[in-house]
Simulated assay, not measured.
Amino acid sequence: MLCDSENDANSSLFESIAQDLRENGYSINPGALPVSLSNLLRESIGRLPDRFFSSAGVGRGQAHLHDEQVRSDDICWISDDSPAGKQWLQWASELQLYLNRRLFLGLFSFESHFARYRPGDFYQRHLDSFKGDANRVLSMVVYLNKDWSPEDGGQLVLYKDEHDDNGTCVVPEMGTVVVFLSDEFPHEVLPADRERYSIAGWYRVNTSTESRIDPPH
């Protein structure tokens, strides 16, 4: 459970994210995840056996494939069957409700996974969604790395569009929360010199029809 001060901090953070999304389409918030939740998630991913992780793929549905030339991290999907997973998904749900009220986004569901990058692992520049092609609306990344410095590498580079060659670098420090429009911001993960932990998540709209039910993933 979060204490009153952390609940107040959440309200401030959620409003900051909403304003940033409205004005810029992305929001970068260093060390903003509640400390108790950050620590719980970091402990949880650190205890996960290797067998719980699988090689990450790219694409969705029949187009899903594994390509280590594109990305080389391992992932573990998060469910609510552990205290850490339950608290994380509750926090993400509260953010979803807040953004729907403030920005009228119609966010319908949320999915997320732990990501583990070994030294040298990377994820090449990509978009999380393509306009008119998928139902991912917002992407969120949270970092779970203690005592991380820029010299350790592993930065997220967020590009404003396909013509941007410089980008904005985000150091994957503990508790940093990044949210951005899924179909507008190409991004990549640079190789790191240390093992690097994060959560990647996506808020979706509902694209179900009479003949097809849209699953979370």
Rank of each mutant, 00 (worst) to 15 (best):
R71D: 03
R71M: 04
R71P: 13
S72W: 05
D73W: 04
D73E: 07
D74A: 12
D74H: 11
D74N: 11
I75S: 06
I75P: 01
C76V: 05
W77P: 02
S82T: 15
P83Y: 09
A84L: 03
A84Q: 08
A84T: 03
A84S: 14
K86Q: 13
W88R: 02
W88L: 08
L89G: 09
Q90W: 07
A92E: 03
S93W: 09
E94A: 14
L95W: 00
Q96N: 13
Q96M: 11
Y98W: 03
Y98D: 02
Y98N: 05
L99S: 06
N100F: 03
R102G: 02
L103Y: 07
L103K: 08
L103S: 10
F104S: 04
F104A: 06
L105D: 11
L105F: 00
L105M: 12
G106E: 11
G106H: 12
G106W: 07
L107K: 06
L107W: 06
F108W: 15
S109P: 06
F110A: 09
F110Y: 15
E111F: 06
E111Q: 14
E111V: 11
S112Y: 05
S112E: 01
S112R: 01
H113N: 03
F114Q: 02
A115D: 01
A115T: 10
Y117H: 06
Y117R: 06
Y117L: 01
Y117Q: 05
R118T: 06
P119D: 02
G120Y: 10
G120P: 07
D121V: 02
D121T: 07
Y123N: 13
R125F: 12
H126F: 13
L127R: 13
S129I: 09
K131F: 13
K131Q: 15
G132T: 12
G132K: 11
G132W: 07
A134V: 06
A134P: 02
N135M: 13
N135A: 13
R136F: 12
R136H: 13
V137P: 08
V137Q: 09
V137T: 12
L138K: 11
L138T: 09
S139L: 10
S139F: 10
S139A: 15
S139P: 08
M140Y: 11
M140W: 05
V141M: 04
V141C: 09
V142L: 11
V142Y: 00
Y143W: 05
N145D: 05
K146H: 11
D147M: 06
D147K: 13
W148K: 02
S149T: 14
S149P: 00
P150L: 05
E151C: 04
E151P: 07
